[in-house]
């Protein structure tokens, strides 16, 4: 008599399960599609000159200056963001217990984590690029340093968050043991806690690096781009994502091929970084007590 009820419930369940599997298949399909296109189109454009020639030669050139520029910008970004981020994360985990400011900053840091990167780029444009024209007699000066600061703003919340989380995983007995021996708190923090959480913090820095390596929007109005090779951080500086952006907009198919090759290199770099961060360091995370 109630078989009808059971049947409808079962049908409902089967439909839901099927839809759920279909949703997962859709997600995986898009992943495979994007990776496949990047791989196949990118490998078609891979040539030795990609790594040896600069963008000034256009179709006959490569992306060497963009890769070098990206490397410099990323290093600058990480060099600025790491000490500040680790310090801020340490303050959140170790010093902010009794203040109301701690939870507020932790909360705002999570918001900064997903704030629109283009607005952060404009912020750096306003406070770094515009004022530097006073130093150079009126020219608006885009520079590698400005680009590095913009990237640092994006890396900062990632590093703050992982440092904060990793330090809170360090057992409290470690702190008590050190303090009872009369170790001052700064020494405890620098020599014991940060060391205990080191692998986790390194993971955070690597994830931050993976994140900023692919950023384009904040570099448009800070590092600006350059068709020549430059190692001078006060000069305008090219970057791989930005060259990909410009080469994708280009109407010439030969230039588009170069954009795909750049996209391939960039994607491989970013994915390798995040894989290393996730797997190489996640194991040691468990056994650092």
């Amino acid at each position: 008599m109630s078989t009808a009820l059971y049947t409808t419930r079962r049908i409902k369940n089967v439909i839901a399960m099927a839809l759920s599997m279909a949703a997962t298949a859709i997600g995986l399909l898009f992943l495979a599609w994007i990776l496949w296109e990047t791989l196949s189109q990118g490998i078609a454009g891979l040539k030795p000159q990609l790594f040896t020639k600069i963008t000034a030669y256009r179709e006959e050139g490569g992306l060497a200056n963009a890769m070098v520029g990206s490397l410099i910008l990323n290093i600058l970004g990480i060099l600025i963001a790491t000490p500040i981020g680790v310090a801020a994360g340490t303050w959140l985990a170790e010093y902010s217990m009794r203040s109301k400011l701690g939870p507020t900053i932790r909360f705002l840091n999570d918001i900064l984590l997903s704030a629109p990167s283009i607005v952060l780029g404009l912020f750096v444009y306003t406070v770094v690029v515009l004022p530097s024209k006073w130093l150079t007699n009126g020219d608006v000066t885009f520079s590698g340093i400005a680009g590095g600061i913009a990237l640092a703003l994006i890396a900062l919340p990632v590093i703050v968050r992982t440092t904060d989380e990793m330090l809170r995983l360090v057992p409290g007995t470690l702190r008590e043991a050190a303090l009872s021996l009369g170790v001052p708190q700064w020494k405890l923090t620098m020599q014991i806690l940060v060391r205990a959480a080191r692998s986790g913090i390194v993971t955070g820095v690597l994830l931050a690096l993976a994140r900023i390596s692919g950023e384009t929007a904040p570099l448009l109005f800070t590092a600006f781009g350059n068709n020549f090779m430059t190692f001078n951080p006060i000069d305008k500086m090219p970057s791989l994502p930005q060259v990909i952006y410009e080469y994708t907009k280009d109407p010439s198919p030969d230039i588009n091929v170069l954009a795909w090759a750049g996209a391939f290199v960039l994607t491989m770099f970013v994915l390798a970084l995040s894989l290393i961060a996730r797997f190489a360091f996640s194991r040691s995370k468990v056994s650092h007590d």
């Binding site: 997962t24 997600g27 995986l28 898009f30 992943l31 599609w33 994007i34 990776l35 296109e37 990047t38 189109q41 993976a210 390596s213 692919g214 950023e215 384009t216 994502p241 990909i244 952006y245 994708t248 588009n256 954009a259 795909w260 996209a263 960039l266 994607t267 970013v270 994915l271 995040s274």
Partner: peptide
């Protein structure tokens, strides 16, 4: 694998979207 999607730079999404 799904989280790998989040790791792909947004410029790659843009290129894939356009071409």
């Amino acid at each position: 694998a799904i989280e790998l999607l989040a790791g792909i730079p947004s410029i790659i999404y843009g290129m894939w979207g356009l071409f």
